[in-house]
């Protein structure tokens, strides 16, 4: 039985890769609540965050620079011109279903656009906005 435990843990880890946008949102919400127990995700703040112009990058000042003003439609990479599928999970079922992928792109894109890491509250607000739609 003891020998089976690592195998079972391994299976759990694989299964944990697949998630729903709601679950991923709940994860960031719980993280944000550690700093502010009264925190609630706000789609309104997420909408403002999505189009806010930051000053770290002249080429890509906001999320919407590449993902487009309407996240339920395709965007286009502002440097390479490559098409980017819709970011809103309602329009693109692949979005926000893999926690590791979500974290990777927050890490990369927040660094690029904001010049710093995004807070858990910013991530939760953004996902709340993307799930609600414009």
């Amino acid at each position: 039985m003891k020998a089976l435990i690592p195998v079972m843990l391994g299976l759990f880890a694989v299964a944990a890769q697949a998630a729903t946008p709601n679950e991923i949102l709940a994860g960031y919400r719980a993280e944000a609540a550690k700093h502010n127990p009264r925190y609630q995700p706000s789609a309104e703040l997420g909408a403002q965050f999505y189009t806010r112009l930051f000053s770290a990058s002249a080429k890509m000042p906001s999320c919407s620079s590449c993902h487009g003003d309407d996240p339920s439609r395709s965007g286009s990479h502002v440097v390479t011109g490559k098409a980017i599928g819709p970011l809103a999970p309602g329009a693109n079922a692949e979005r926000f279903t893999d926690p590791a992928k979500v974290e990777k792109w927050f890490r990369r894109n927040c660094g690029e656009v904001l010049g710093r890491a995004c807070s858990a509250a910013e991530k939760a607000d953004l996902i709340a906005f993307l799930m609600r739609g414009r």
């Binding site: 502002v78 440097v79 390479t80 011109g81 490559k82 098409a83």
Partner: peptide, 11 residues
């Protein structure tokens, strides 16, 4: 505007 440079092959 639809190309943005020679590396955008698919344009």
């Amino acid at each position: 505007a639809d190309v943005r440079g020679p590396a955008n092959c698919a344009a």
